[in-house]
Design a protein around this nucleic acid. Structure first.
Lengths: 249, 249
DNA sequence: ATATATTTTGCTGTTTTATGCACTATATAT
DNA sequence: ATATATAGTGCATAAAACAGCAAAATATAT
Protein backbone atom coordinates (compact mmCIF):
# COMPACT_ATOMS: atom_id res chain seq x y z
CA UNK A 1 0.00 0.00 0.00
CA UNK A 2 1.27 3.42 -0.92
CA UNK A 3 1.91 5.94 1.80
CA UNK A 4 -0.53 8.42 0.27
CA UNK A 5 -3.26 5.83 0.14
CA UNK A 6 -2.74 5.03 3.76
CA UNK A 7 -2.87 8.66 4.71
CA UNK A 8 -6.04 9.12 2.69
CA UNK A 9 -7.62 6.27 4.57
CA UNK A 10 -6.55 7.82 7.82
CA UNK A 11 -8.21 11.08 6.84
CA UNK A 12 -11.26 9.17 5.69
CA UNK A 13 -11.58 7.36 9.00
CA UNK A 14 -11.15 10.57 10.91
CA UNK A 15 -13.79 12.33 8.84
CA UNK A 16 -16.12 9.40 9.22
CA UNK A 17 -15.80 8.66 12.91
CA UNK A 18 -14.44 12.00 14.06
CA UNK A 19 -11.71 10.23 16.00
CA UNK A 20 -9.30 7.35 15.61
CA UNK A 21 -6.89 5.46 17.81
CA UNK A 22 -3.39 4.83 16.57
CA UNK A 23 -3.53 1.25 17.77
CA UNK A 24 -6.72 0.57 15.84
CA UNK A 25 -5.41 2.11 12.68
CA UNK A 26 -2.15 0.20 12.91
CA UNK A 27 -4.14 -3.00 12.93
CA UNK A 28 -6.56 -1.96 10.20
CA UNK A 29 -3.85 -0.73 7.89
CA UNK A 30 -1.51 -3.54 8.84
CA UNK A 31 1.48 -1.36 9.55
CA UNK A 32 3.42 -0.68 12.71
CA UNK A 33 2.11 1.85 15.14
CA UNK A 34 5.19 3.94 14.47
CA UNK A 35 4.19 4.35 10.88
CA UNK A 36 0.70 5.42 11.80
CA UNK A 37 2.13 7.82 14.29
CA UNK A 38 4.38 9.33 11.67
CA UNK A 39 1.52 9.60 9.20
CA UNK A 40 -0.66 11.32 11.75
CA UNK A 41 2.19 13.67 12.53
CA UNK A 42 2.50 14.62 8.88
CA UNK A 43 -1.22 15.02 8.38
CA UNK A 44 -1.39 17.16 11.46
CA UNK A 45 1.40 19.34 10.13
CA UNK A 46 -0.58 19.61 6.90
CA UNK A 47 -3.69 20.51 8.91
CA UNK A 48 -5.65 17.56 7.57
CA UNK A 49 -6.47 16.35 11.06
CA UNK A 50 -5.58 17.07 14.64
CA UNK A 51 -3.15 14.86 16.44
CA UNK A 52 -4.07 14.05 20.02
CA UNK A 53 -2.67 11.72 22.61
CA UNK A 54 -3.27 8.20 21.40
CA UNK A 55 -4.88 9.08 18.10
CA UNK A 56 -6.32 11.88 16.02
CA UNK A 57 -9.54 13.86 15.71
CA UNK A 58 -11.21 15.69 12.88
CA UNK A 59 -10.40 19.32 12.27
CA UNK A 60 -14.05 20.16 12.30
CA UNK A 61 -15.40 21.86 9.28
CA UNK A 62 -13.36 25.01 9.72
CA UNK A 63 -10.94 24.63 6.83
CA UNK A 64 -12.72 25.09 3.57
CA UNK A 65 -9.68 26.97 2.40
CA UNK A 66 -9.07 24.58 -0.49
CA UNK A 67 -11.63 26.13 -2.78
CA UNK A 68 -11.39 29.72 -1.67
CA UNK A 69 -7.81 30.36 -2.41
CA UNK A 70 -7.76 30.62 -6.17
CA UNK A 71 -10.75 32.80 -6.84
CA UNK A 72 -9.68 35.99 -8.51
CA UNK A 73 -10.37 39.13 -6.47
CA UNK A 74 -12.09 37.17 -3.75
CA UNK A 75 -12.03 40.06 -1.31
CA UNK A 76 -14.07 42.30 -3.55
CA UNK A 77 -16.46 39.55 -4.48
CA UNK A 78 -17.09 38.73 -0.87
CA UNK A 79 -17.83 42.38 -0.20
CA UNK A 80 -20.29 42.44 -3.08
CA UNK A 81 -21.96 39.27 -1.87
CA UNK A 82 -22.34 40.70 1.61
CA UNK A 83 -24.16 43.71 0.23
CA UNK A 84 -26.38 41.49 -1.88
CA UNK A 85 -27.32 39.42 1.15
CA UNK A 86 -28.93 42.49 2.71
CA UNK A 87 -31.57 42.45 -0.03
CA UNK A 88 -32.77 38.99 0.92
CA UNK A 89 -35.96 38.53 2.89
CA UNK A 90 -37.20 35.37 4.60
CA UNK A 91 -39.51 33.39 2.36
CA UNK A 92 -38.24 35.14 -0.75
CA UNK A 93 -37.86 33.56 -4.15
CA UNK A 94 -34.67 34.46 -5.97
CA UNK A 95 -32.52 33.45 -8.88
CA UNK A 96 -28.76 33.12 -8.56
CA UNK A 97 -26.60 33.16 -11.65
CA UNK A 98 -23.32 31.34 -12.18
CA UNK A 99 -19.83 32.77 -11.80
CA UNK A 100 -17.58 33.24 -8.84
CA UNK A 101 -19.28 36.35 -7.53
CA UNK A 102 -22.68 34.68 -7.44
CA UNK A 103 -21.00 31.67 -5.91
CA UNK A 104 -19.87 33.88 -3.09
CA UNK A 105 -23.42 35.08 -2.66
CA UNK A 106 -24.63 31.49 -2.43
CA UNK A 107 -21.89 30.67 0.03
CA UNK A 108 -22.73 33.55 2.33
CA UNK A 109 -26.47 32.96 2.61
CA UNK A 110 -27.14 32.61 6.35
CA UNK A 111 -28.07 29.18 7.61
CA UNK A 112 -31.24 30.44 9.21
CA UNK A 113 -32.61 32.24 6.16
CA UNK A 114 -35.52 30.54 4.46
CA UNK A 115 -35.40 30.99 0.70
CA UNK A 116 -36.34 29.43 -2.59
CA UNK A 117 -33.45 29.68 -5.02
CA UNK A 118 -33.51 28.99 -8.71
CA UNK A 119 -30.22 28.58 -10.48
CA UNK A 120 -28.69 27.47 -13.76
CA UNK A 121 -25.30 26.79 -12.27
CA UNK A 122 -24.18 23.35 -11.09
CA UNK A 123 -21.63 24.66 -8.59
CA UNK A 124 -24.08 27.18 -7.19
CA UNK A 125 -26.68 24.44 -6.80
CA UNK A 126 -24.18 22.29 -4.93
CA UNK A 127 -23.28 25.20 -2.71
CA UNK A 128 -26.92 25.99 -1.99
CA UNK A 129 -27.55 22.43 -0.87
CA UNK A 130 -25.41 23.10 2.18
CA UNK A 131 -27.95 25.70 3.34
CA UNK A 132 -30.52 23.95 5.54
CA UNK A 133 -33.35 26.36 4.85
CA UNK A 134 -32.93 26.92 1.15
CA UNK A 135 -35.09 25.13 -1.38
CA UNK A 136 -32.97 24.61 -4.45
CA UNK A 137 -34.51 24.40 -7.89
CA UNK A 138 -32.25 23.73 -10.81
CA UNK A 139 -33.31 24.99 -14.19
CA UNK A 140 -32.31 22.13 -16.47
CA UNK A 141 -30.96 22.15 -19.96
CA UNK A 142 -27.84 21.39 -21.88
CA UNK A 143 -24.83 22.15 -19.74
CA UNK A 144 -22.10 24.45 -20.98
CA UNK A 145 -18.76 22.84 -20.29
CA UNK A 146 -16.86 26.01 -19.48
CA UNK A 147 -19.47 27.93 -17.56
CA UNK A 148 -21.04 24.86 -15.93
CA UNK A 149 -24.49 26.31 -16.38
CA UNK A 150 -27.60 25.27 -18.28
CA UNK A 151 -27.92 26.89 -21.68
CA UNK A 152 -30.08 26.45 -24.74
CA UNK A 153 -33.71 26.57 -25.67
CA UNK A 154 -34.80 24.26 -22.90
CA UNK A 155 -33.33 26.35 -20.13
CA UNK A 156 -34.71 29.52 -21.67
CA UNK A 157 -38.13 27.98 -21.95
CA UNK A 158 -38.15 26.93 -18.33
CA UNK A 159 -37.08 30.37 -17.27
CA UNK A 160 -40.03 31.78 -19.19
CA UNK A 161 -42.31 29.95 -16.78
CA UNK A 162 -40.98 31.42 -13.56
CA UNK A 163 -40.93 34.82 -11.97
CA UNK A 164 -38.67 35.54 -9.03
CA UNK A 165 -38.45 38.50 -6.67
CA UNK A 166 -34.79 39.10 -7.33
CA UNK A 167 -32.51 37.88 -10.05
CA UNK A 168 -28.85 38.13 -9.03
CA UNK A 169 -26.70 38.06 -12.12
CA UNK A 170 -23.08 38.50 -13.02
CA UNK A 171 -21.71 39.66 -16.32
CA UNK A 172 -18.56 39.34 -18.33
CA UNK A 173 -18.40 43.02 -19.22
CA UNK A 174 -20.35 46.11 -18.25
CA UNK A 175 -20.34 49.63 -19.61
CA UNK A 176 -22.65 52.55 -18.79
CA UNK A 177 -23.27 53.23 -22.44
CA UNK A 178 -23.17 49.78 -24.01
CA UNK A 179 -24.78 47.92 -21.15
CA UNK A 180 -23.99 44.32 -20.22
CA UNK A 181 -22.06 42.29 -22.78
CA UNK A 182 -20.61 38.79 -23.00
CA UNK A 183 -18.14 36.77 -24.92
CA UNK A 184 -20.59 33.93 -25.53
CA UNK A 185 -23.81 34.09 -27.45
CA UNK A 186 -25.40 31.18 -25.58
CA UNK A 187 -24.77 32.84 -22.27
CA UNK A 188 -26.39 36.05 -23.45
CA UNK A 189 -29.54 34.18 -24.39
CA UNK A 190 -30.05 32.65 -20.97
CA UNK A 191 -29.11 35.87 -19.21
CA UNK A 192 -31.83 37.66 -21.17
CA UNK A 193 -34.28 35.01 -20.05
CA UNK A 194 -33.16 35.41 -16.45
CA UNK A 195 -33.74 39.15 -16.58
CA UNK A 196 -37.21 38.59 -17.99
CA UNK A 197 -37.93 36.12 -15.22
CA UNK A 198 -36.95 38.57 -12.50
CA UNK A 199 -39.16 41.23 -11.01
CA UNK A 200 -35.99 43.04 -10.05
CA UNK A 201 -32.58 42.37 -11.52
CA UNK A 202 -29.49 42.87 -9.40
CA UNK A 203 -26.13 43.03 -11.12
CA UNK A 204 -23.09 41.89 -9.16
CA UNK A 205 -19.83 43.09 -10.66
CA UNK A 206 -16.39 43.96 -9.44
CA UNK A 207 -15.37 47.49 -10.36
CA UNK A 208 -12.59 46.15 -12.54
CA UNK A 209 -15.21 45.16 -15.11
CA UNK A 210 -16.71 48.64 -15.36
CA UNK A 211 -16.29 50.32 -18.71
CA UNK A 212 -15.47 47.13 -20.57
CA UNK A 213 -17.43 45.60 -23.39
CA UNK A 214 -17.54 42.66 -25.71
CA UNK A 215 -19.29 41.14 -28.67
CA UNK A 216 -22.77 40.15 -27.60
CA UNK A 217 -25.18 42.31 -25.66
CA UNK A 218 -27.30 41.06 -22.80
CA UNK A 219 -29.19 44.24 -21.99
CA UNK A 220 -28.96 47.98 -21.41
CA UNK A 221 -28.01 49.37 -18.05
CA UNK A 222 -31.58 50.57 -17.66
CA UNK A 223 -32.72 46.94 -17.51
CA UNK A 224 -30.87 46.61 -14.23
CA UNK A 225 -32.55 47.72 -11.03
CA UNK A 226 -29.59 47.54 -8.70
CA UNK A 227 -25.90 47.37 -9.34
CA UNK A 228 -23.58 46.18 -6.62
CA UNK A 229 -19.85 46.67 -6.74
CA UNK A 230 -17.27 46.47 -4.00
CA UNK A 231 -16.98 50.27 -4.15
CA UNK A 232 -18.71 52.81 -2.00
CA UNK A 233 -21.90 53.89 -3.84
CA UNK A 234 -20.61 57.46 -3.86
CA UNK A 235 -17.39 56.56 -5.57
CA UNK A 236 -16.58 58.63 -8.64
CA UNK A 237 -15.95 55.58 -10.76
CA UNK A 238 -19.70 55.02 -10.70
CA UNK A 239 -20.60 58.50 -11.92
CA UNK A 240 -21.40 57.43 -15.45
CA UNK A 241 -24.09 55.14 -14.13
CA UNK A 242 -25.93 57.88 -12.28
CA UNK A 243 -27.58 59.00 -15.49
CA UNK A 244 -29.71 55.91 -15.41
CA UNK A 245 -32.55 54.90 -13.17
CA UNK A 246 -30.40 52.45 -11.29
CA UNK A 247 -29.77 51.92 -7.63
CA UNK A 248 -26.12 51.70 -6.65
CA UNK A 249 -25.13 49.66 -3.64
CA UNK B 1 5.49 -0.35 -27.78
CA UNK B 2 5.61 3.37 -28.33
CA UNK B 3 6.27 5.73 -25.51
CA UNK B 4 3.04 7.59 -26.16
CA UNK B 5 1.02 4.43 -26.01
CA UNK B 6 2.69 3.35 -22.81
CA UNK B 7 2.03 6.64 -21.11
CA UNK B 8 -1.56 6.49 -22.23
CA UNK B 9 -1.91 3.10 -20.57
CA UNK B 10 -0.34 4.46 -17.42
CA UNK B 11 -2.91 7.23 -17.29
CA UNK B 12 -5.64 4.73 -18.00
CA UNK B 13 -4.58 2.48 -15.16
CA UNK B 14 -4.35 5.39 -12.77
CA UNK B 15 -7.80 6.65 -13.71
CA UNK B 16 -9.26 3.21 -13.35
CA UNK B 17 -7.72 2.06 -10.11
CA UNK B 18 -6.87 5.44 -8.62
CA UNK B 19 -3.35 4.22 -8.02
CA UNK B 20 -0.52 2.23 -9.52
CA UNK B 21 2.75 0.79 -8.34
CA UNK B 22 5.83 1.33 -10.44
CA UNK B 23 6.86 -2.28 -9.98
CA UNK B 24 3.51 -3.59 -11.19
CA UNK B 25 3.47 -1.34 -14.20
CA UNK B 26 7.03 -2.29 -15.13
CA UNK B 27 5.93 -5.89 -15.25
CA UNK B 28 2.67 -5.25 -17.06
CA UNK B 29 4.21 -3.03 -19.70
CA UNK B 30 7.34 -5.19 -19.87
CA UNK B 31 9.80 -2.35 -19.52
CA UNK B 32 12.32 -1.53 -16.85
CA UNK B 33 11.19 0.20 -13.74
CA UNK B 34 13.33 3.19 -14.68
CA UNK B 35 11.33 3.73 -17.81
CA UNK B 36 8.10 3.65 -15.90
CA UNK B 37 9.57 6.00 -13.39
CA UNK B 38 10.57 8.42 -16.10
CA UNK B 39 7.15 8.19 -17.71
CA UNK B 40 5.47 8.89 -14.41
CA UNK B 41 7.79 11.81 -13.85
CA UNK B 42 6.78 13.32 -17.19
CA UNK B 43 3.10 12.71 -16.64
CA UNK B 44 3.37 14.26 -13.23
CA UNK B 45 5.03 17.32 -14.72
CA UNK B 46 2.16 17.47 -17.20
CA UNK B 47 -0.31 17.15 -14.31
CA UNK B 48 -1.85 14.00 -15.72
CA UNK B 49 -1.28 12.13 -12.48
CA UNK B 50 0.48 12.57 -9.18
CA UNK B 51 3.79 10.91 -8.60
CA UNK B 52 4.30 9.49 -5.15
CA UNK B 53 6.92 7.32 -3.58
CA UNK B 54 6.60 3.92 -5.15
CA UNK B 55 3.94 4.71 -7.70
CA UNK B 56 1.38 7.24 -8.74
CA UNK B 57 -2.14 8.24 -7.81
CA UNK B 58 -4.91 9.93 -9.69
CA UNK B 59 -5.11 13.71 -9.59
CA UNK B 60 -8.56 13.66 -8.10
CA UNK B 61 -7.56 11.31 -5.37
CA UNK B 62 -6.11 13.81 -2.96
CA UNK B 63 -8.01 16.92 -3.92
CA UNK B 64 -11.46 15.39 -4.08
CA UNK B 65 -10.44 12.97 -1.40
CA UNK B 66 -13.54 13.58 0.64
CA UNK B 67 -15.77 11.86 -1.85
CA UNK B 68 -13.39 9.44 -3.52
CA UNK B 69 -11.88 7.54 -0.69
CA UNK B 70 -14.85 6.72 1.42
CA UNK B 71 -17.06 5.36 -1.25
CA UNK B 72 -18.27 2.13 0.16
CA UNK B 73 -17.26 -0.92 -1.86
CA UNK B 74 -15.50 1.15 -4.49
CA UNK B 75 -13.79 -1.85 -6.05
CA UNK B 76 -17.05 -3.59 -6.79
CA UNK B 77 -18.66 -0.44 -8.08
CA UNK B 78 -15.75 0.17 -10.41
CA UNK B 79 -16.12 -3.34 -11.74
CA UNK B 80 -19.82 -2.78 -12.34
CA UNK B 81 -19.16 0.50 -14.07
CA UNK B 82 -16.61 -1.14 -16.35
CA UNK B 83 -19.17 -3.69 -17.45
CA UNK B 84 -21.72 -0.96 -18.03
CA UNK B 85 -19.28 0.95 -20.21
CA UNK B 86 -19.23 -1.94 -22.66
CA UNK B 87 -22.88 -1.25 -23.48
CA UNK B 88 -22.16 2.26 -24.66
CA UNK B 89 -21.97 3.03 -28.35
CA UNK B 90 -20.64 6.17 -30.03
CA UNK B 91 -23.39 8.67 -30.65
CA UNK B 92 -25.69 7.03 -28.11
CA UNK B 93 -28.14 8.84 -25.89
CA UNK B 94 -28.25 7.63 -22.31
CA UNK B 95 -29.48 8.54 -18.87
CA UNK B 96 -27.29 8.25 -15.82
CA UNK B 97 -28.84 8.14 -12.38
CA UNK B 98 -27.36 9.45 -9.15
CA UNK B 99 -25.53 7.41 -6.54
CA UNK B 100 -21.95 6.32 -6.17
CA UNK B 101 -22.16 3.42 -8.61
CA UNK B 102 -23.54 5.61 -11.36
CA UNK B 103 -20.92 8.16 -10.45
CA UNK B 104 -18.30 5.55 -11.15
CA UNK B 105 -19.91 4.90 -14.51
CA UNK B 106 -19.75 8.60 -15.33
CA UNK B 107 -16.16 8.75 -14.20
CA UNK B 108 -15.06 5.87 -16.39
CA UNK B 109 -16.61 7.03 -19.63
CA UNK B 110 -13.70 7.12 -22.10
CA UNK B 111 -12.54 10.51 -23.24
CA UNK B 112 -12.96 9.61 -26.88
CA UNK B 113 -16.54 8.37 -26.64
CA UNK B 114 -19.17 10.65 -28.08
CA UNK B 115 -22.39 10.55 -26.08
CA UNK B 116 -25.41 12.54 -25.04
CA UNK B 117 -26.06 12.06 -21.35
CA UNK B 118 -29.13 13.09 -19.42
CA UNK B 119 -28.93 13.13 -15.66
CA UNK B 120 -30.79 14.27 -12.57
CA UNK B 121 -27.70 14.26 -10.39
CA UNK B 122 -25.60 17.34 -9.75
CA UNK B 123 -22.42 15.40 -8.97
CA UNK B 124 -22.85 13.18 -12.00
CA UNK B 125 -23.37 16.25 -14.20
CA UNK B 126 -20.19 17.80 -12.84
CA UNK B 127 -18.32 14.60 -13.48
CA UNK B 128 -19.64 14.33 -17.02
CA UNK B 129 -18.45 17.83 -17.82
CA UNK B 130 -14.89 16.53 -17.62
CA UNK B 131 -15.57 14.30 -20.62
CA UNK B 132 -14.69 16.22 -23.78
CA UNK B 133 -17.08 14.38 -26.07
CA UNK B 134 -20.12 14.12 -23.86
CA UNK B 135 -23.07 16.45 -24.22
CA UNK B 136 -24.57 16.90 -20.78
CA UNK B 137 -28.21 17.68 -20.29
CA UNK B 138 -29.47 18.24 -16.79
CA UNK B 139 -33.06 17.48 -16.06
CA UNK B 140 -34.04 20.33 -13.79
CA UNK B 141 -36.34 20.40 -10.81
CA UNK B 142 -36.29 20.81 -7.09
CA UNK B 143 -33.07 19.40 -5.72
CA UNK B 144 -33.12 16.82 -2.97
CA UNK B 145 -30.63 17.81 -0.33
CA UNK B 146 -29.48 14.33 0.59
CA UNK B 147 -29.47 12.67 -2.79
CA UNK B 148 -28.37 15.78 -4.69
CA UNK B 149 -30.72 14.96 -7.54
CA UNK B 150 -33.73 16.66 -9.10
CA UNK B 151 -37.04 15.42 -7.77
CA UNK B 152 -40.65 16.48 -7.94
CA UNK B 153 -43.28 17.03 -10.57
CA UNK B 154 -41.10 19.22 -12.71
CA UNK B 155 -38.35 16.67 -13.11
CA UNK B 156 -40.85 13.93 -13.77
CA UNK B 157 -42.57 16.01 -16.39
CA UNK B 158 -39.32 16.70 -18.19
CA UNK B 159 -38.44 13.05 -18.15
CA UNK B 160 -41.74 12.30 -19.80
CA UNK B 161 -40.57 14.25 -22.82
CA UNK B 162 -37.39 12.31 -23.48
CA UNK B 163 -36.56 8.81 -24.57
CA UNK B 164 -33.03 7.48 -24.24
CA UNK B 165 -31.36 4.32 -25.54
CA UNK B 166 -30.20 3.19 -22.14
CA UNK B 167 -31.18 4.29 -18.67
CA UNK B 168 -28.54 3.37 -16.13
CA UNK B 169 -30.05 3.38 -12.68
CA UNK B 170 -29.08 2.44 -9.18
CA UNK B 171 -31.39 1.35 -6.40
CA UNK B 172 -31.46 1.32 -2.65
CA UNK B 173 -32.70 -2.23 -2.41
CA UNK B 174 -33.34 -5.05 -4.85
CA UNK B 175 -35.05 -8.39 -4.46
CA UNK B 176 -35.95 -10.95 -7.10
CA UNK B 177 -39.49 -11.22 -5.81
CA UNK B 178 -40.22 -7.69 -4.57
CA UNK B 179 -38.31 -5.86 -7.25
CA UNK B 180 -36.57 -2.52 -6.74
CA UNK B 181 -37.46 -0.60 -3.60
CA UNK B 182 -36.38 2.64 -1.94
CA UNK B 183 -36.47 4.39 1.36
CA UNK B 184 -37.76 7.64 -0.14
CA UNK B 185 -41.03 8.17 -1.88
CA UNK B 186 -39.77 11.11 -3.95
CA UNK B 187 -36.91 9.10 -5.30
CA UNK B 188 -39.21 6.32 -6.35
CA UNK B 189 -41.32 8.74 -8.35
CA UNK B 190 -38.42 10.02 -10.43
CA UNK B 191 -36.95 6.54 -10.85
CA UNK B 192 -40.26 5.40 -12.31
CA UNK B 193 -40.13 8.28 -14.73
CA UNK B 194 -36.58 7.39 -15.69
CA UNK B 195 -37.55 3.82 -16.46
CA UNK B 196 -40.39 5.04 -18.62
CA UNK B 197 -38.02 7.34 -20.46
CA UNK B 198 -35.60 4.52 -21.24
CA UNK B 199 -35.86 2.13 -24.15
CA UNK B 200 -33.73 -0.23 -22.11
CA UNK B 201 -33.17 0.01 -18.38
CA UNK B 202 -29.90 -1.17 -16.90
CA UNK B 203 -29.70 -1.70 -13.16
CA UNK B 204 -26.33 -1.26 -11.50
CA UNK B 205 -26.16 -2.83 -8.07
CA UNK B 206 -23.52 -4.37 -5.87
CA UNK B 207 -24.34 -7.92 -4.86
CA UNK B 208 -24.62 -6.88 -1.25
CA UNK B 209 -27.94 -5.24 -2.05
CA UNK B 210 -29.45 -8.38 -3.51
CA UNK B 211 -32.33 -9.81 -1.54
CA UNK B 212 -33.00 -6.63 0.39
CA UNK B 213 -36.15 -4.57 0.35
CA UNK B 214 -37.72 -1.43 1.73
CA UNK B 215 -40.86 0.59 1.92
CA UNK B 216 -41.59 2.03 -1.51
CA UNK B 217 -41.48 0.13 -4.74
CA UNK B 218 -39.90 1.45 -7.92
CA UNK B 219 -40.67 -1.45 -10.24
CA UNK B 220 -40.63 -5.20 -10.68
CA UNK B 221 -37.53 -7.03 -11.75
CA UNK B 222 -39.18 -7.66 -15.08
CA UNK B 223 -39.08 -3.94 -15.81
CA UNK B 224 -35.30 -4.18 -15.90
CA UNK B 225 -33.61 -5.28 -19.10
CA UNK B 226 -30.11 -5.79 -17.78
CA UNK B 227 -28.76 -6.17 -14.30
CA UNK B 228 -25.08 -5.61 -13.66
CA UNK B 229 -23.39 -6.69 -10.45
CA UNK B 230 -19.72 -7.15 -9.67
CA UNK B 231 -20.28 -10.91 -9.72
CA UNK B 232 -19.73 -13.30 -12.56
CA UNK B 233 -23.07 -13.68 -14.39
CA UNK B 234 -23.00 -17.41 -13.63
CA UNK B 235 -22.68 -16.88 -9.89
CA UNK B 236 -25.20 -18.82 -7.81
CA UNK B 237 -26.20 -15.74 -5.89
CA UNK B 238 -27.97 -14.59 -9.03
CA UNK B 239 -30.02 -17.76 -9.48
CA UNK B 240 -33.23 -16.25 -8.21
CA UNK B 241 -33.11 -13.68 -10.97
CA UNK B 242 -32.90 -16.25 -13.74
CA UNK B 243 -36.63 -16.81 -13.56
CA UNK B 244 -37.15 -13.43 -15.14
CA UNK B 245 -36.54 -12.19 -18.61
CA UNK B 246 -33.48 -10.27 -17.57
CA UNK B 247 -29.97 -10.16 -18.89
CA UNK B 248 -27.26 -10.62 -16.28
CA UNK B 249 -23.89 -9.05 -16.84
C1' DA C 1 20.54 4.11 -48.82
C1' DT C 2 23.83 5.63 -45.62
C1' DA C 3 25.54 8.43 -42.14
C1' DT C 4 24.67 11.40 -38.33
C1' DA C 5 22.08 13.36 -34.64
C1' DT C 6 18.60 12.77 -31.23
C1' DT C 7 15.79 10.31 -28.25
C1' DT C 8 14.81 6.47 -25.54
C1' DT C 9 16.00 2.78 -22.68
C1' DG C 10 18.34 -0.16 -19.34
C1' DC C 11 22.11 -0.62 -16.23
C1' DT C 12 25.31 0.83 -12.35
C1' DG C 13 26.40 2.94 -8.14
C1' DT C 14 24.93 6.42 -4.87
C1' DT C 15 21.59 8.97 -2.22
C1' DT C 16 17.20 9.43 -0.25
C1' DT C 17 12.99 7.73 1.81
C1' DA C 18 10.05 4.62 4.33
C1' DT C 19 9.48 1.47 7.82
C1' DG C 20 10.02 -1.31 11.90
C1' DC C 21 12.43 -2.12 16.21
C1' DA C 22 14.62 -1.07 20.62
C1' DC C 23 15.01 2.13 24.09
C1' DT C 24 14.00 6.30 26.78
C1' DA C 25 10.94 9.96 28.06
C1' DT C 26 6.46 11.61 28.88
C1' DA C 27 1.64 11.55 29.57
C1' DT C 28 -2.65 9.40 31.46
C1' DA C 29 -5.21 6.68 34.67
C1' DT C 30 -6.11 4.37 38.90
C1' DA D 1 2.55 7.45 43.54
C1' DT D 2 2.75 3.85 40.74
C1' DA D 3 1.55 1.32 36.71
C1' DT D 4 0.43 1.44 32.04
C1' DA D 5 0.07 3.37 27.72
C1' DT D 6 1.76 6.56 24.40
C1' DA D 7 5.35 9.72 22.35
C1' DG D 8 9.93 10.69 20.86
C1' DT D 9 14.65 9.28 19.29
C1' DG D 10 18.18 6.88 17.02
C1' DC D 11 19.38 3.19 14.21
C1' DA D 12 19.28 -0.73 10.76
C1' DT D 13 17.33 -2.43 6.69
C1' DA D 14 15.05 -2.54 2.50
C1' DA D 15 13.00 -0.28 -1.10
C1' DA D 16 12.84 3.49 -4.15
C1' DA D 17 14.65 7.76 -6.40
C1' DC D 18 18.30 9.81 -8.71
C1' DA D 19 22.32 10.75 -11.68
C1' DG D 20 25.42 9.36 -15.09
C1' DC D 21 26.56 6.43 -18.83
C1' DA D 22 26.37 3.44 -22.80
C1' DA D 23 23.63 0.66 -25.90
C1' DA D 24 19.61 0.57 -28.71
C1' DA D 25 16.03 2.64 -31.23
C1' DT D 26 14.30 6.37 -33.79
C1' DA D 27 14.46 10.51 -36.41
C1' DT D 28 16.84 13.58 -39.62
C1' DA D 29 19.98 14.99 -43.08
C1' DT D 30 22.88 14.07 -46.94
Amino acid sequence: MLKEERQQRLIGEVELHNRILLTDMAEILDVSIDTVRRDVKELDAASKLQKVHGGAISMGFTTNSARNNNIYALEQKTKIAEKAITLLKPGGVIFIDGGTTCMELARLIPDDLELTCFTLSLPVAMQLLTKPNVTVIFVGGQISREAQISIGANAIHHLSEIRVDYGFIGTGYVDALFGLTEFDWDIVQVKKAVIKASKKTVLLSISEKLNSQHRYKTCDISAINTMITELDPENNLLNLFRNYDIRLL
